[in-house]
Simulated scan of single mutants.
Amino acid sequence: MKEQNEYHHDDKPINNKGVINVRKLAALDIVFHGMKMIMVEFLAAVLVCAGLAVLLLFFISSHTLSNTLLGLYFLGVALNYLPLLSYALLIRTRDQAANVAERELKDVDHYGRRYSLQSILLILIPYALALLALSQLAARRSHS
């Protein structure tokens, strides 16, 4: 079991391009909405969107361009929720989440608006949040 200090890295709340930190987004959601609610939300989003994608891409008899594009869209949204679900599983408790997002919680008005707006946009743009999470993970590993 990881110690609480391992969850508090020196992640900047926002990188130099003003983009949200996906790990901290999951932590803030846990702090504000509770672990159970967030786990249900993230897991349901992954399962429902992935299910719709599979249905549209493989089980609808009319393979039209619109069905294919809609299926790829839902697949992208499902993939956007995977990093959030993964971080929520790693964080595990509201206290650990508060530790991860400590800096953002000190200025909720500023960071809350930024994280809210960007997270909505990034979740709805297929593959965007997933790619952002991968790039942030790679950057964090290269700095370690």
Rank of each mutant, 00 (worst) to 15 (best):
N21I: 04
V100E: 10
Q96Y: 12
A88Q: 03
D109V: 10
A130V: 00
L69T: 01
H63A: 14
R113I: 09
G51P: 08
E104H: 11
G112T: 04
L70D: 01
L121Y: 06
Y115D: 01
A139M: 07
A27G: 07
K106F: 00
G76V: 05
L47A: 15
L132G: 01
P126T: 10
P83V: 06
D29I: 00
N67C: 08
F32M: 10
A27N: 09
L124G: 12
A88P: 07
S135Y: 01
I125Q: 09
R23W: 06
L124C: 15
L121E: 00
L70W: 11
N21S: 15
N21M: 07
P83M: 03
K106D: 09
L57K: 09
F59M: 08
L121A: 14
I38L: 01
L124A: 12
L69W: 12
N80G: 08
P13I: 05
P126R: 07
A45K: 14
R92C: 03
F58K: 13
F59E: 02
G34P: 10
L72Y: 14
H8F: 08
L75A: 15
I91Y: 02
R114H: 12
G71M: 03
L129H: 02
V48Y: 12
Y111T: 02
Q96N: 15
A138E: 03
I125R: 04
L131I: 11
S86P: 00
Y87A: 10
K36V: 09
R92Q: 15
A98R: 08
L117K: 13
A130W: 11
L90S: 11
L131Q: 04
N16F: 12
L105R: 06
I30T: 04
C49I: 00
S86Q: 08
L134V: 10
A139I: 00
Y127V: 12
A101Q: 02
L137I: 13
I91P: 11
E41Y: 05
A53N: 07
H63M: 06
N67L: 09
G112K: 08
A26E: 00
F32I: 03
D10C: 02
Y111K: 04
L47M: 14
M35D: 01
H63T: 07
T64Y: 09
D95H: 09
Y127S: 05
I20E: 06
G71Q: 04
V100C: 10
A50G: 15
D109W: 09
L79N: 00
Q96V: 07
Q118T: 05
H110P: 02
G76F: 05
F42K: 11
L69N: 12
L84V: 06
L134A: 14
K17D: 09
D11I: 06
L79F: 14
V48I: 15
F59H: 11
G51Y: 08
T93E: 13
H33A: 11
V54P: 00
L131F: 11
V40T: 12
Q4C: 05
L129S: 01
K106I: 02
P13R: 03
R141W: 14
K12F: 04
M35W: 07
A53F: 05
P13F: 06
R92N: 11
A97T: 06
M35V: 15
